[in-house]
Write a protein that binds this DNA or RNA. Structure first.
Length: 104
DNA sequence: ACATTGACTAATT
DNA sequence: TAATTAGCCAATG
């Protein structure tokens, strides 16, 4: 994985507004469209290595569930940011929170 | 070069 | 609604 891809991922993630989220799959699609390679798992790998400075909690899987390690913490932050959560507060309401570049 | 693994997804049970 | 299965692309050892 070269820097170009890494940069592209971080760029997209950084562009997600507070209170909205994107799925790994959607990001992967955009990047595949732009760079011609990559998949959902690659996005996950990049974020896992990206470390601090990246709002990784605004990226969720297709079920609206944040990464397993810190899902509780992630959900807490999302709630703070006003992100629409499902009634049980355990997952993101993708129907309302899902965002992609230009959606605003 | 081969096998295993992973912050995924979609279809099936 | 939740668990299982098979496909996926690249990184890692």
């Amino acid at each position: 994985m070269d820097e170009e891809y890494l940069e592209a991922v971080l760029d997209v993630v950084a562009a997600i507004p507070a209170g909205r989220v994107m799925t790994y799959g959607t990001i992967a699609e955009d990047l595949r469209d732009a760079l011609g390679r990559g998949g959902p798992r690659q996005v996950g790998t990049v974020l896992s290595r990206a470390g601090s400075g990246v709002p990784w909690w605004r990226v969720v899987n297709a079920s609206g569930l944040p990464p397993a390690f810190k899902r509780e913490e992630a959900l807490a932050v999302l709630r703070t940011e006003g992100c629409p959560l499902s009634p049980d507060g355990a997952r993101v309401r993708l129907g309302d929170a899902l965002w992609w570049p230009g959606d605003d």
